[in-house]
Design a protein around this nucleic acid. Structure first.
Lengths: 197, 197
DNA sequence: AGATGACCATGACAAAAGTCATCGCGAACC
DNA sequence: GGTTCGCGATGACTTTTGTCATGGTCATCT
């Protein structure tokens, strides 16, 4: 099964896999929630999930998908090889983590290896994820940083999260400090780059 | 010819086009500069360019490509259907503007229409581009806004652009005002969403 | 020849953002 | 039972942003 929001890319990936005669695409989905429903219905051997999708990203729905279709292997396919993504993917029980930058043949090869029971992870990425360490941000710090990512003012964030302005300032300050940034914007950038948001 | 930086997507698109027996992929490139070189060598009828690429984006290299291979029709294929992108694509002489969200069959169909001499643009997108109006930012305002997008401080920007801090502040302020934002971050967001950056 | 507008710069001021010390509460852990 | 840590809050303080008025140069357009 294929879950990817960009239809043209999804169609192209389907075409790519269609060239392999031991592989068949039995279902397609354009979002996280839909992926779970489709998997429950079509019972695929393997689910290929994109991360950047509307309606619940691939990492968030992985647990639900495991519940809905326990025998289905989960493979994460993403544009960005962020250490934090890989970590979360592994914690969610994914069998593979691929980046779209990789060679096209790698996809079919990885699927076969996953079906055979192997786990497939780019060694360089694995090393980066390990050396980067875990997410240093507390849940609340993440919330606040994320809420401020779009240019919202402190008052906006406080309002949206039902916190006092001072509290928001403190969380923001400690988040900035923890990621080693000089201000909110830098903090959001580096946190995103690490896959911490 | 196919220019797209993500190899897996590029391979998948090639597979998709390979299914059509009146179409053939004669060259592939992973960046803007490479696209020009490949086009000069392989002389394709049509060049399919992604926008979000390293080494000069599709819009920037379109003029060079026209110079290098005058008979080659240029098609822009992008993730984001931003009004400003469409406008720039048209000004660069592109024959088509497609978004990756569209249906997969649309790609081959669009290529055939372009070869037949037609121009292919999503009507909804064209309307949005026209109603949004042209880029309100002056070149310098764009520079400053862009330089500050990564969280650089005013002093950083002033330094990088060889301007006084006050000047940077003024440009930033007028840019914020022009796009109707409340601060730098919001300004960058909306400017990006419109394709003005 | 005069208007317009992009460009660069100051200085002054108000409004945010960020830092720091300090406090209380509750849960987890040794 | 004490320590630690995440959570939420205050108040005071400094720095950074953003706004505004103003002024000058240069190129373009009418």
């Amino acid at each position: 099964m294929l879950a990817e929001d960009q239809r043209m890319v999804r169609g192209a990936l389907a075409a790519l896999l269609g060239l392999e005669d031991d592989l068949e695409v039995v279902g397609e989905a354009s979002g996280g929630a839909e992926a779970v429903a489709v998997a429950a219905r079509t019972r695929p051997d393997v689910a290929l999930l994109d991360i950047e999708m509307p309606g619940g990203d691939g990492l968030a729905v992985a647990p639900e998908l495991r519940a809905a279709a326990p025998d289905c292997k989960i493979m994460i396919l993403t544009t960005f090889g962020r250490p934090g993504y890989l970590r979360r993917a592994m914690e969610a029980g994914a069998a593979a983590f691929l980046v779209k930058d990789g060679p096209a043949q790698e996809l079919a090869a990885a699927i076969r290896r996953v079906v055979a029971g192997e786990r497939v992870i780019d060694p360089a990425l694995a090393a980066a994820a390990l050396s980067a360490g875990p997410n240093p941000l507390s849940p609340r710090e993440r919330d606040v940083l994320d809420a401020g990512a779009d240019g919202s003012t402190i008052a906006d964030i406080a309002d949206r999260l039902h916190l006092s302005e001072g509290t928001v300032r403190n969380y923001l300050s400690s988040a900035i400090n923890k990621v080693g940034a000089r201000n909110r914007i830098e903090a959001v950038h580096t946190a995103r780059a690490q896959g911490w948001l």
